[in-house]
Structures are given as structure tokens and as C-alpha cells.
Design a protein around this nucleic acid. Structure first.
Length: 113
RNA sequence: GUCGGCCGGUGGAAGGUCGCUCCCUGUCAUUUCGGCGGGGAGAGGAAAGUCCGAGCACCACUGAACCACGGUGGUGGGUAACGCCCACCGUCCUGCAUAGCCUUUGGCGAAGCAGGAUAGGGAAAGUGCCACAGAAAAUAUACCGCCCUCCGAAGCCGGAUACUGCGUAGCCUCCGGCAAAGCAGUAUGGCGAAGGGGGGUAAGGGUGAAAAGGUGCGGUAAGAGCGCACCGCGACGAUGGUAACAUCGUCGGCUUGGUAAACCCCACCGGGUGCAAGGUCAAGCAGCGAUUAUGACGCGGUUCAGGUCUUAUGAUCGCGGGUAGGCCGCUUCCGUAUGGAGAGCUCGUCAGCGAUGGCGGGUCAAGACAGAUGGCCUUCGCCCCGCCUCCGGAAAGUCCGCCGGGGACGGGGAACAGAACUCGGCUUACAGCCGGUCGACCGGG
RNA sequence: UGGGGAAUAGUGUAACGGUAGCACGACUGACUCUGAAUCAGUUAGUCAAGGUUCAAAUCCUUGUUCCCCAA
């Protein structure tokens, strides 16, 4: 499964995101906080939340792109039928490999709960 | 050549692969959404700040004007418009620098030249403020000072008179007395330091950011635009210029300091809110109406059936407003189309000092909505560092080394910053490179 | 995204354009055997840059940071 990350794979509605924040389970490490919730469709959907404290618009866009790319490339390793929200922490070093590693670890911890 | 200021330009390029958003299109499925393919397009000079000006939308008022509030402010032009831009004018600053002046290794410096800054209407319409210091901070005043005049203790002066004292020539009656001269004092008189009264003056004094036109000569009791010359100011006139304004001449003697980014006055401009504007479709809940079913109260003498009115509940249908949510606005517009329109972009040309405009050709160019334009890699170009090497120069017996230029290898770096309704500006941020201009320093001819 | 407001010692707040105060705090000293309280003294500030003005915390312009409103 090497397909892309289209509109159907992203969480678009505000109400859905608020539901995930309220009901979802979360886990975090030094650089990332992951919130996940079971959904009823056979997809792994995702969203990225980047606060203003990360910097100006260029820096925030850069973080979102890195997170999306990391999610796209390691999506097969994550549990199916879940919605994920990625929330990077302020001031942490980010690149693709680090985000992928954090994603795998945090998803495993969430599933064990 | 180096460094710095200002202005303008540029804001890496090509490719591979995996992805993202939109448009067109083929096919599959299909009420839609969509899956798999093909083609095309996809961030900036500031997209930023949201400081101005517009378009567009809704609301309010429906003429104009006035009032209130806010904004702008030299002149002319450009523009759809502007608080923007261009040119010019005035003022100020810096540098150079001539005439000239001075206390002459030097300093000051009118005119002039070059560069830069400029929110720059009105201060004789009115009000306010100008701390401290200072006599006085704005209808001038009069502290010190200068001058005139009056009084004036001490003192000085001169001569006349009067008186008193001393006093000598001389006279007598020579103990003694008288006494012209002369001397001294007092009174009347004059001058008059200190001080006081009245007046003139604003040259000088210290203070302050700022001191009542400036400098010089004359003038005067002392002074003063009191008079004169030059400069400054104001009024009038002439000339040049579209105008701001400039130059010249005549007159006024000159009374009016600064502050309007203090209130204010004058002229001009402005209705308000903003795409989360606004429009449209519309679940659910609530409401209303119709039909129908059931129940209850009442009605026509009683009972039953039926009818009717009111009411409750359920079902179905419909209605308007409209929440969640979707769509449009929204990617240049109109039109089926040839095409037309557009403050659109771009190239050329013409007009203009320039901003800009005319004409002609080409072109239509991102459109997301938890928010696309990205990840990894390769090559080239740019900059810096290290090392190796080549050429030239100075020097030298030679090498190392020094200066300038070129090449190869390795390592590192590349700013500020991301469209969100759309335009025109302004402001702010910005590595490196290129060009222009100005200044300082160094080197060569 | 659009609109509105604020910034003064470490903290909370005052101040006509004319010497930046007040309270709490911190520090030092005195008092005490020691501490607290009290007394005396010290410290430290106008968000940044530029302009207007003789003079700016105050007026004007630009920027920075923070807060509030509208979903």
C-alpha cells in the first residue's frame, strides 16, 4: 500500500476533530503527542495540529508537511481503522525519521491500552 | 581598489523518483461522493503589517446645504482614486569653495557648486502654554546702569553787604582808646560727593532654548530707526513664470518672539460596516395549516348511528423563517460561438525632463477551506574555508615566504519570508550578487 | 481572517509637555541571645527606533510584545 494521502485520508471537519480530542486516547514522547480514536471506516485518517508558538507561517507549514510525509510513508505500520491527530511539541528537532519512529512507538502504546 | 551612505535591479537553474490541490478529458461504477488512467496549471518582492485609496456586497439616509466628528495641507502635473508618484518652489543640514573679514601654520565665510533631509496653509481672528534662571517671557517693563532737574549733611568757591572777633599802617588826650587795609567766623549766595524726590532713556549688564529688528557711522544731556548706508521685515508696483515663487524698483521706519505633531481658524475630502460582507439549498428540534384516526366536553326532546364546534394525541402531506452542514461569492467578466469588455500582465514604438499616457502585437495566468505548491536524491552555477598546483610581479645567489590571477580536490553555506474576495500604493523585514551616484582612505599615471 | 485596546522599578499602580512618585518586595544597618515586628538608609523603571518642541512617560510616525471581541 504505497498510495498517496488524498482528501479522504485527512480529517477535514471541525466537529470530527473535536470528537477525537474529547474521546480519543493519547500518548506522547519528547517530540510528539499522538491522539487516536477508532473510526467506523476502513481507513487510517490523520490531521496535524501546530500551534502559533512554533513560529511564523513558513515554519508551521514546514512542520505540517514533514508530519504528513512521515505519516504517508509509514502508514502501513499503524493500526487500521483509526483517526490520528499529530501534535508536535514546541522547540523539538524534527525530521522524517524521528517522526516515523515516534509514530510507531506511540501507536503501539495506544493499542495496548 | 577597500569601506560606508543613498537609489535601482535580481531574489539560483536543470533533472529523477514518491506524493498534494485545482481544471479539462477517457473509462468503470453511479442519485451524488468516488476508483484507475492521460493532459495542463500551481506562492512573493514583500504573499507580511493592515497604515491609506478604490472595486464589490449589505445596511441606513434618500436633493442640496448646515452642525458634529475624523482626515489631509507649498505649487503644478499624473492617476479610477489616494495621505501615493513625478517635476518644480521654499526652508534646513553636510561637504567643497570664491570675493571678503579676522587675533594669519589658521579661523569665519555672502554668492556659487555637489549631495542629502523636509507632516511645508494660517501665530497682525481669538484662547492657552513658555518650567528653572532672569529686571522683564510678550497690551513690554524699568532692577542695575546712563542723563536732566529739585532737595541736600560734610566740604569747596568767590565777592558784595551786615555783624562779631583778631589785627596792623595811622590818629588821639598815648594808661588806654579809635581804626582804613588785611585775616578768621556767622548769615544771605553758588557748586556739591553719599543719599532722597521728579523726569528722560532703552545704548550697556547678567539669565535663558528664546530678550523686543542686526551691524556701522552720524546724532544727543544721555540715548533711541531719531537720521543715513547695507542686510532683514512689511506694503505697493513692474518684469519673468500656468503657479508656488524669483528678480528689480519705490515707500513704510519697523508695531506685531516661539509653539497649530496645543486648542483653534481657513480650504478640501469623508454615510456606516466589512467576503466570518452577502446570497442560496437545507437535515434535526420547535411552530403553523390541511386531511385522517382515536378519545373527551358541548349542541339540536330521549337512545343509537351520523354530523358539527372546541380540544388532546398519533400518522401523512404542505408552509414560511431558519440552526448544524453543503454550495455560490471564488478566481477576469459577458456571450452558444466568431467575438466583445477589462484602473489586468507583457513586448515594441511614439509623446513627455519625469510620474505616466497614446498606438500596435502577444497573453488571460494558483484558488485551498484543519487550509495544496512537499519529501528524498543527482548535476551545474554563486560565496567562504582548508590543501595542492600553474602563471605573472617585487626581491634575491637559490629555496621557503609575500602580492595578484587561474585550475583541481575536500568540507561548509545560501536571507526575509507562504496566497485566503480582488486591485493601486505606503511601511516594515531581507543573505549574496549586479548597476548607478556621493563621501572617506589607500595606491598608480 | 477581520475589528478593538494596552505596555511605567521584581509586582501592583500614579503623574497639565517642565526634578518620574506611592505601596508591597529585595538588600544593608540599628534594636534582640536569635527570629518576627518596628526604625533608618540603599537599590532598580517610562516597550524599541525616529520625528515635532527650548524641553517628550505624555504629542506624531513606524515596529515589537501582550490582552480582548467576532467562529
Amino acid at each position: 500500500m504505497r498510495a498517496g494521502l488524498g482528501k479522504a485520508d485527512r480529517i477535514k471537519k471541525r466537529s470530527e476533530i473535536m470528537r477525537i480530542f474529547r474521546r480519543g486516547r493519547s500518548a506522547s514522547d519528547g517530540r510528539l503527542r499522538l491522539i487516536a480514536l477508532n473510526n467506523s471506516i476502513d481507513r487510517r485518517r490523520m490531521a496535524v495540529v501546530v500551534s502559533r508558538r512554533h513560529g511564523n507561517a513558513v515554519r508551521r507549514n514546514r512542520i505540517k508537511r514533514l508530519c504528513r510525509e512521515a505519516f504517508r510513508t509509514c502508514r502501513g505500520d499503524l493500526p487500521e481503522s483509526f483517526d490520528y491527530i499529530l501534535k508536535p511539541k514546541v522547540g523539538s528537532e524534527l525530521n522524517i525519521e524521528l517522526i516515523q519512529e515516534s509514530l510507531r512507538n506511540l501507536a503501539g502504546r495506544i493499542i495496548k491500552l
